[in-house]
Design a protein around this nucleic acid. Structure first.
Lengths: 216, 216
DNA sequence: GTATGATTGAAATGAACGTTTGAATTAGAA
DNA sequence: TTCTAATTCAAACGTTCATTTCAATCATAC
């Protein structure tokens, strides 16, 4: 039955792409795990690249929709006169990723590991395809941060956003690995809170002095 | 002449591994760029994996030695009664990476891009080999941070260290790319200062309240 | 000049890859 | 039941890969 075949391929691909990356995952691995025939991938998805794109859309779109909904809610609050702050925006960015981790069990964690890795994916076409799914998020979060951090230049806001993305992506990958710099990293809700606080403080930090005027 | 052949292979490999990752870079690409024969890789390095390991050692070891020297200097200062703070430690961690970028021109930037990517490399053996080169750094920086941040638990210090690693790794990769979330990211010394301040603020942030006690 | 080891070159080896092909099977509609 | 389209299957296709092989060439020492 075609719907089941597609789902089985998507699930298998998701997990294997997360573990091994795109280049080092073969279609034969995916089809073995999914218990389907090799030709099914091209029949249902057209190509290996298109399969990965389907995996993204299957999962990234709902995560980003949740981000945008949370930001909508914050903006509605602000319109009612309630103050919102940097932490609120950080939560709207960070928490949906962890909701995905929690909401789909091991498969969700695997998927978010893949998302973490896509930020440094070397297949440029795929990385760009992936980024396109995040464009709506960038287009909403950058102005929100700019409003909250009016003293920062445009470059500074972009940099800080990327620092946050990097910290989140790295955590999504590392919490699935047995070995990291000093052993296995603990996970859980305390980690999520720590990530929120770290990024809140970092985003809200005083802008650095101009170069050459660091502590006399 | 053998020394020249080895260097040409190392240089070509460094750039190509940085651009395309390990799995998607073939030895034939490397030897074409290096202008040497395919068999030379196995003759001089033994295997593709060993080539990448040689690339790491060629460059990571000096960067990490600089980190440790900077930390040594901070600790000597502290022994003389001079106060050191979180920003000093962040600088000792972050600046050597950017010294490598600046010090070797485009080749240094390529190498640091590879370093940024290795944090999420899917070839587990290679990633672990890479991490081993950072063990001395972890063994020195973690206690230094723990001393400066005594109110944080061990997990919290590890998490924050990883947030910093993630932000640095992401920047090392992204500043080499034409497309990022909202266009091309600016580089330069202001970026480095921004990264230092972001991570200083994040590392020094008040520990988050226990879960469930967030703003009533 | 000769001998030995180092180094390079071209081809081969064995394996793996994504995509395609055409037949067989399945599913659904009339 | 028959017909048609959808789906699956197994094999083939053309390509690419890292490693190995062995002869040729180069470099060095005696």
């Amino acid at each position: 039955m075609s719907l089941e075949t597609k789902e089985r391929i998507l699930d298998a691909a998701e997990g294997l792409f997360a573990d091994h990356g795109f280049a080092a995952t073969s279609l034969r691995q995916i089809t073995a795990v999914a218990g389907v025939n090799l030709a099914a991938v091209n029949y249902h998805f057209g190509s290996k690249e298109a399969l990965l794109t389907s995996v993204f859309e299957h999962r990234v779109v709902p995560v980003n929709q949740e981000r945008l909904r949370m930001l909508d809610a914050l903006e509605a609050d602000a319109a009612q006169g309630k103050a919102i702050d940097v932490e609120d925006v950080v939560r709207a960015f960070v928490l949906p990723a962890f909701h995905a981790v929690e909401g789909f069990g091991q498969q969700g964690a695997k998927f978010m590991q893949l998302v973490g890795r896509m930020h440094s994916e070397t297949n440029e076409q795929l990385r760009v395809t992936f980024l396109k799914l995040f464009r709506p998020v960038g287009q909403r979060f950058v102005p929100a941060l700019r409003q909250l951090l009016p003293s920062l230049s445009e470059d500074e806001v972009m940099w800080r956003l990327h620092f946050m993305i990097g910290s989140l992506a790295h955590i999504l990958v590392c919490t699935q690995l047995e070995e990291t710099l000093m052993g296995k990293l603990a996970g859980g809700s305390d980690l999520v809170e720590a990530l929120v606080q770290f990024n809140t403080a970092g985003l809200a930090a005083q802008a650095p002095a101009a170069v050459g005027v660091r502590r006399a």
